[in-house]
Design a protein around this nucleic acid. Structure first.
Length: 271
DNA sequence: CTAAGGACCTGTCGGC
DNA sequence: TGCCGACAGGTCCTTA
């Protein structure tokens, strides 16, 4: 479900409730996520102060004095701040219980999300191989151009590869390619540097705008207050198959690329 | 090494 | 109305 803007929206929503607070422990109703929830989670969280709530790629990092919690929302995960006695709904798998009467509640129907606890998140296997943050200055056209050399994979798959750049999922990949006028199916290594510069800028723009709008809700994304994101109304191509291209008026097309739907305008993204 | 496809899991929707 | 297949915001793992 969530791409970078939705995870960042979640981070901003939960951060004020968590930072400086103290955990009593965890309630694990169903630990069968993408990876099993650590069985000693409750004990290891008990009494720990929350120092910071950060994000790296689509991972939320909750820093405690000794350990850091690494939370991923997978395709269908969301986090809410609830009162501790709020009855758990179906798929409310884990609560992180705080000493102020509230809990951080993970809801995840498909259970592709995950929770890890580690002393050194930067060197964790899930984190250490990640590429740059798209909104950092280290991610730019020069970087994209250099890393795309000799790559024959499609540009869309390329920018969705977290070793290249993190945070770009299926929605925003289509949107950024549309904004930069690039054919999603073209080999990454065959796109000129100026056009990759436009693509890097487009990725930054679309992600920044989506964060400002609280993310994109297609069906079930909600922020930490349970509210949807509003960027859906700003989507130019994603989910608009058959609708008119906002630039040239031709119908927006959809093609399956790998297992994923790619939305594009054949006319505006001819190459 | 790269690239492509499958796997994980549940819910929803469209077609018959 | 009921059933069945296709599809959904991610990403690791296996295979070629």
């Amino acid at each position: 479900m969530p791409e970078l803007p939705e995870v960042e929206t979640t981070r901003r929503g939960i951060e004020p409730y968590l930072t400086g607070g103290t955990l009593l422990g965890a309630v694990v109703r169903d630990g069968r996520l993408r990876w099993p929830v650590p069985t000693d989670l409750d004990a290891r969280l008990s009494g720990q102060r929350i120092n910071q709530v950060d994000r790296r790629a689509k991972y939320l990092l909750i820093a405690l004095p000794g350990d850091t919690l690494i939370i991923h929302l997978g395709m269908s995960g969301s986090l809410r701040i609830v009162n501790r006695d709020t009855p758990a709904d179906k798929h409310d798998h884990v609560d992180l219980v705080m000493d102020n009467g509230r809990s951080l509640r993970l809801h995840d129907p498909r259970r592709f999300g995950s929770i890890h606890l580690t002393a050194d998140p930067a060197s964790h296997e899930l984190i250490r191989h990640l590429g740059p943050e798209p909104l950092d200055s280290a991610f730019n056209g020069a970087y994209l151009h250099g890393s795309a050399r000799h790559r024959r994979v499609s540009i869309k798959a390329f920018i969705m590869n977290a070793r290249v750049v993190v945070g770009v999922g299926n929605i925003y990949a289509s949107e950024a390619l549309f904004r930069s006028g690039i054919n999603p199916f073209r080999a990454a290594g065959r796109i000129s540097r100026p056009r990759l510069e436009r693509l890097a800028d487009a990725i930054k723009e679309v992600l920044s705008e989506a964060i400002e709008q609280g993310g994109t809700t297609l069906r079930d994304f909600v922020d930490s207050d349970g509210k949807p994101g509003y960027f859906k109304q700003s989507l130019a191509v994603y989910g608009r198959e058959g609708g008119n291209c906002l630039i040239c008026g031709e119908p927006v097309r959809m093609r399956r690329q790998g297992q994923r739907a790619t939305y594009y305008c054949k006319n505006c993204q001819a190459r």
